[in-house]
């Protein structure tokens, strides 16, 4: 599904660079041993910027919930309406979420709580984005 192409910035450049290499990395505070997403300049728990690193995660997760978009404001997505937008939580930490269009799953047939695996989809400017597919 053609999406808007993300433009990386100072804060999230490593995330997008990893996507282009087919890896999913998440910001991690080594002091708190805590994952954080979306990325922030400092750790939301300890407030420090000094202990943040990027940690590769398994790319496995679960479906938390979803809604089906029938009237999106985003122009490039309108031709594909209706489509799923699913909240995915990561296996390493169910507090960490990502959104997905859940490629391969019929609209509104989202399997509740199902396991998902990350894959990477190329957007029009070449930047890859994480997408998720139901497994098993």
């Amino acid at each position: 599904m053609p999406k808007q192409s993300p433009i990386p910035d100072e804060l999230d450049r490593p995330f997008w660079a990893a996507c282009n290499e087919g890896r999913l990395v998440i910001q991690h505070c080594t002091r708190c041993d805590r994952l954080q997403h979306p990325p922030e300049p400092t750790c939301a728990q300890c407030g420090s910027a000094d202990n943040l690193e990027w940690r590769q995660v398994s790319g496995r997760g679960r479906i938390y919930s979803y809604a089906v978009m029938y009237d999106t404001p985003v122009t490039v997505l309108q031709a594909d309406q209706p489509f799923n937008i699913v909240v995915i939580t990561l296996e390493e930490d169910p507090g960490i979420q990502m959104l997905s269009h859940l490629p391969g799953t019929t609209v509104d047939q989202v399997p509740w709580g199902a396991s998902v695996q990350v894959e990477f989809e190329t957007t029009p400017n070449g930047q890859k984005v994480p997408e998720w597919r139901v497994v098993g």
Binding site: K3, Q4, S5, P6, I7, D9, D12, H37, P38, M69, D71, T72, P73, V74, T75, V76, L77, Q78, F83, I85, M98, L99, S100, H101, P124, N125
Partner: peptide, 24 residues
């Protein structure tokens, strides 16, 4: 709908994690 950032082919800032997926 179809205004401002929603009308663009690219997406920047924090919206990358949310509205870039088409959320309303």
């Amino acid at each position: 709908v179809g205004q401002g950032a929603a009308a663009e082919d690219t997406i920047a800032g924090r919206a990358k994690w949310t509205t870039g997926w088409g959320t309303v």
